[in-house]
Amino acid sequence: MNTIWIQIAGFKIRLTSESEMELEEGYFPFIIPESSADIDVQGYSGLPENPFTGLLPVFEAENDDQKFYSIYRLADHRLGFAVYNQRERTDIQQIAFLSVDYRHWEVYSRPLADNKINPLRYPMGPIIMYYMTVNADAVLIHASCIYDGVKGRIFSGFSGTGKSTTSRIWAEAGYLVINDDRLIIRKEGDDYYAHNTPMYYVDQPKKTILNSAFLISHSPENRIKKLNGAIAVTRVLAFCIQNNFDPDFVNNNLAFLSNMCKKVSVYELGFVPDSKMIDFVRQNETE
């Protein structure tokens, strides 16, 4: 039996399989020594035949360009996932089953060319990361995150609004980029922390306390507006990864964010993509 332990945002995941496993290199720095596990992933080689016959999906993760995965509710209340190959697009690369406590996965994978399997092959890895958060004080969010030695700030927005640009500007000024695309935010004690997650490139696990969240867009001039209450919560929620077919998931996100927004300041930020945004942000934060 082959076993690998990884830790993401403090969640410990045990991967076990009779087949040899091969992870994408972005996961390598997240591998930890043998440990207890919050999440168990049992990997299998080969796909079961027609596991969801007669079922309609309860959720489809797709956009105009790509289909990522479909979710089914099984008769025993477990969730079933058909995960699509992101190159072939229509081809199913994995079938997965998730226990009702969201802690135990069975992941069936098409074997790689050398007969190894990769149970976390994209987008399966981020799916598992999302379901780590549904029962925890945590959210998975599309955002970049910077730590300047004093404060942690996330910058979130739709594709093309400047998350990577923001990271580059702060990195060129010498500040620490926690991640420029996908984070897990967790409540730890009375504070909130932003953690990076494994990406397609290699980066070390990092975290920072979170002080401010900026909802960004490009603008002809730098401008900032503090958001409060329900507006702040909905604006941040819009950038969280969500499978909103289950009211429990929505309630968990709303509870988490409504508490987080009391502690973490939320701003709407229009910015000109140059280094002046750094001083502008610092001078105009109200807290």
Binding site: A230, V233, L237, F245, P247, L254, A255
Partner: peptide, 22 residues
């Protein structure tokens, strides 16, 4: 799904499609 925040109410639709999350 709704949640009261102060005097306001946040309303989130249950949906079967990621494209309708916003």
């Amino acid at each position: 799904v709704t949640r009261a925040i102060g005097d306001e109410l946040v309303i989130v639709p249950l949906t079967g499609n990621v494209a309708k999350m916003n």
